[in-house]
Design a protein around this nucleic acid. Structure first.
Lengths: 168, 168
DNA sequence: CTAATTAAGTCAACATGACTGACCTTAAAT
DNA sequence: ATTTAAGGTCAGTCATGTTGACTTAATTAG
């Protein structure tokens, strides 16, 4: 009855497979955020603060505009979260010498420590998942998830900087 | 300098690779939810309503308790969202004949239509990503994301019901 | 049969993180 | 000198989560 939709035609993407992807992404994200959320609560911070801390740590001297492009939230929303982080001395601002309207954001030592604590839990989760599979699976994961991201933002995810054999 | 951390030791999971996973998941989830969110706004609904509609559609006659286990939110939070959906006639409730404390949830025709509209955008995104890669990559994606999910919930994501050759 | 447990619902109060819209300052670019 | 861009701010709103206390109804265990 549903034979056309199932294995008889390997080129037909079955709804079941697509829904499985949807659900994997939902559950993975749900669990991926749970541990950091618990740590953040101890500091009186939330998930929005985590995202800012993460991307400032990852991109030292990032500007507010660039941060907005990553997070895709409004300036007002970011402003409040960023204000807290600066006041609590997790993040430093300094004027860009070449354009003094711009403020360059960096983590303070305190900020780096919190970033490390938060990111460690998420890296441990990925390390476990990577180890449970193999390099081929990890590459597949990377390529599929990259395809889920809007094309214009795929380049934001830094490609591995290969130091080994692969040059071409 | 960082040679030990890089390609010279293929068993060492480099921080760069782990962070790439973190970022892929962040961007993928951000874009994955954007289209449904826009549709939901037209109906005066939010992301929380989507999740309920999705999982009720996926699990007809699901109970509130089971829904709570999937969503991992509080009964009070679910109650508000579910109340709206029942009032707006996206979801039906009926008592379980074998245990009349339980209420079984199903989508109405209106609910099925909205579910279809929302899920279609997400399935299209996965279909594109799957087509851009290959079956091996998809399998890798599945295995890695499954490893990100807490072990006790991995079985919630239904394995493909194979109708083809593989029986054992 | 009674007591305990379970499923569900409800009320109140609160926190977080989004949003819109209006407006202002500062500095760079034309 | 004017326009544009980056950034900040104020005010109000909404969605979605939280805790805690409590109720009702129905099943299950002693």
């Amino acid at each position: 009855m549903t034979d056309l939709k199932s294995s008889s035609n390997p080129l037909f993407l079955r709804e079941e497979d697509l829904r499985q992807g949807i659900e994997l992404l939902f559950y993975a994200y749900r669990d991926f955020t749970a541990e950091p959320d618990a740590i953040l609560t101890k500091w009186g911070l939330g998930r929005a603060h985590h995202r800012v801390i993460y991307f400032v740590g990852r991109n030292p001297n990032i500007t507010v505009t660039e941060l907005l492009a990553i997070l895709k939230i409004t300036k007002q929303s970011l402003s409040r979260v960023l204000g807290t982080l600066i006041e609590d001395e997790f993040i430093n601002q300094r004027a860009d010498p070449s354009d003094r309207r711009r403020k360059l954001l960096t983590l303070t030592e305190k900020g780096r420590e919190l970033e490390r604590e938060l990111t460690t839990t998420q890296m441990a989760r990925f390390a476990r998942a990577y180890r449970e599979t193999d390099a081929e699976a990890v590459e597949g994961f990377r390529r599929v998830l990259s395809g889920i991201i809007n094309p214009e933002d795929r380049a934001r995810v830094r490609p591995r900087q290969r130091t080994g054999s692969g040059r071409g």
